[in-house]
Computed example of a mutant assay.
Amino acid sequence: MKHQPHLTLVGAGPGDPDLLTLKGAKALRQANVVLYDALIDPRLLHHAPPQALKVYVGKRAGQHRATQGEINQLIVQYAKSHGHVVRLKGGDPFVFGRGQEEAAFARSKGITVDIVPGISSCIAVPELQQVPPTRRGYSESFWVITGTTREGELSADLALAAKSTATVIVLMGMKKAEQIAALFERAGKSALPAMAISKGSTLAEQRAIGTVATLPKLIEARQLPCPGLLVFGEVVRLHPEWDYEAISTAQLKERA
């Protein structure tokens, strides 16, 4: 039986497998092949049929990396040989996920494409800490910025964002927290509330809350692992334990 080549890009959400959408689960149940990333909870693969191929194409430091070109070729190869390929990506596939590149390459090879958006960590992870990106009287807008460009440098948008009154959410910025905080300090915002969340929405979630001036030290002291995101803005004051964390921050500063 000849299979019709087809690709479905599915956003897996921020980490908690229960945050996969119903449409994402439906796509997995209909998959012949699942190509999945490093940060995908393995339990999500149980939605796929037992006979479906599950192929790891993750990109993690210190391990073999499947290049984007290799992933694109695998999508086409498996779609033509097996039919329905589900490309399972963390968060939302179009938010720093290169999903559009994969979809465009598949279409260029005559493969039909569907998109299933995922719950992005940029909103979900702070929200699970009860910190909203916006709230009346605190923030009228929010920026979502990558902490590191493909060249390994800080995004130029960070310096612009630091000067705004918006909430600034930085994805993949944990390792550059000190450099990012320095941009806010140069903008006169040393006392601005700030938060770091590691492995958000999972059982291994950790967080640190302080100010621009203290957040890098808190991250280091608590040895928060990647992946993680940073939140800068007055909305961090809305965290239920803000007062307690402010005391801890002051104590850490005294010991430094």
Rank of each mutant, 00 (worst) to 15 (best):
T146W: 04
A208I: 03
K109H: 14
R29D: 00
D92S: 06
A250M: 12
G97T: 09
L44T: 00
R136D: 06
G69S: 12
G210V: 10
T214S: 15
D92N: 09
L230C: 00
V86D: 03
G118A: 08
R186I: 01
G137P: 12
L229V: 15
G24A: 04
G15N: 06
A181D: 05
A159G: 07
I169N: 03
Y78A: 03
S139F: 02
R207H: 13
I119Q: 00
G233K: 08
K54N: 10
G99K: 06
S120L: 05
V76L: 09
A27L: 06
V57W: 04
A156G: 09
K199C: 12
L171M: 15
T149R: 11
D243K: 15
A156F: 13
G13D: 05
E101L: 08
Q30F: 01
A166Q: 08
V85K: 10
V55T: 07
D18N: 13
R207A: 08
R186S: 11
K189L: 10
T8R: 07
F184D: 02
A213Q: 09
K89L: 03
P227Q: 10
K59R: 13
Y36W: 11
K54S: 07
Q251V: 08
S190Y: 02
L160A: 14
G58M: 11
L19N: 01
G13T: 05
G91Q: 07
E151A: 12
S198G: 10
I247Y: 06
G200I: 01
G13V: 05
A213P: 02
L252Q: 15
L171Y: 15
V10D: 01
G13K: 02
A48K: 02
A106Y: 10
G91H: 07
K54W: 08
P133R: 15
I180D: 01
A161C: 08
A194G: 05
Q179W: 06
R87H: 04
T21S: 11
T165S: 14
Q4C: 05
G200K: 00
L160S: 13
T165A: 13
A156S: 13
T134P: 09
S121I: 06
L203N: 13
Y56S: 04
